[in-house]
Nucleic acid binder design. Structure first.
Lengths: 181, 181
DNA sequence: CTATAATTATTGTTATAACAACTAATTTGG
DNA sequence: CCAAATTAGTTGTTATAACAATAATTATAG
């Protein structure tokens, strides 16, 4: 059988930013039976591409933040003093995931954990000054991506699209409406 | 600050199968500004929920296969003798990812790598008998999930939904049409 | 009030994803 | 034909996700 790893000169195992597309262009040439009409496959890949676009844009602008870190950072920004459990609910991430994302954001001085006054099990979460300084930039980068991804969709198409996504979420019995009390 | 890990009796850090929803239900009570109207956030979470539904269904039925392994397995099934590079293109995964997923599928005896006759760098990929035996079961599980997720969408709604997803993919310059030559 | 249960957060494990770097093998260019 | 470039696949690193299990703390039951 083939070997275990060696090398050559130009392996483009991972597309970078703009070249990233090459690989995708290359091999997609046969015909799927199961996949070609699979909404799930298309849904998953579209979401993945959007995430990748965000990741690359951040990196391209010189920021190390990731899409998930961006989500958590924004959730903290919009609810300063929130605890990790509630943050998990808001971001639809589980608590270990939130813990680790916060570890990174804290190490990068974008957020701070402060002890909960009443309940010593909890942290209250806040943006640092650096977090506040950077979040606007991050959000403008994301806005650009949103324009690129969704800019040519009509209001109606966007509305229908989001409605369908919500319906699918409901079908899967997951909460997605981001407010309540 | 809070400590570094200890315990109690009932931590439900991760929702299991059916209870999984609880956490989501719990904390989503404030109001997002950035997220509440974000198609990207909704898109990403919906795709994630669908993946989770698959993962749990497989596990619930006693199978260890994951959604991504399922995708790769099906791609092999539909293109026996395909090489890893082309498989990466078909599944829209990068080559290291495909390598590692195949490692797992091979260890679980669902697929086999055979040396490429002409080019000794390449493997040709095939289902094993066990792979063939199980794939129908896997696919029927996925069909059930598709019915659950999309079953109450009309033909027109599904068609519009997929069209919009394709448009977004195009906007992001990624290939998603799974055939060509 | 104290033993038990419940809750918040953390850590460990495995899988996926992106990307860099690298090996073996093949192709190209001269 | 041989050196250089290319290609197929692998490995390493970091981040996210799911889930199990646990520590510290708080709430509840009796």
């Amino acid at each position: 059988m083939p070997r275990k790893t060696e090398q050559s000169s130009t392996d483009f195992t991972h597309p970078t930013l703009d070249e990233g597309i090459e690989m995708l262009e290359k091999a997609s040439r046969l015909t799927f039976r199961i996949f070609e009409n699979s909404a799930g496959f298309l849904l998953n890949n579209t979401a993945g591409r959007l995430r990748l676009e965000m990741l690359r844009s951040f990196k391209f602008r010189g920021y190390t933040i990731t899409p998930d870190q961006w989500v958590v950072l924004n959730a903290v920004a919009e609810h300063e003093g929130i605890c990790q459990r509630d943050l998990a609910g808001k971001t639809l991430k589980d608590r270990p995931t939130v813990t680790r994302i916060l570890d990174i954001l804290e190490a990068n001085r974008l957020i701070a954990r402060r002890p909960g006054t009443d309940d010593r099990r909890m942290f209250k979460l806040y943006l640092t000054d650096e977090g506040k300084k950077n979040i606007e930039t991050f959000n403008s980068i994301v806005s650009e991506i949103d324009r690129k991804a969704f800019g040519n969709l009509s209001e109606q198409e966007m509305s229908r699209f989001k409605k369908t996504l919500s319906k699918i979420m409901d079908n899967l019995e997951a909460r997605h409406t981001l407010d309540e009390s």
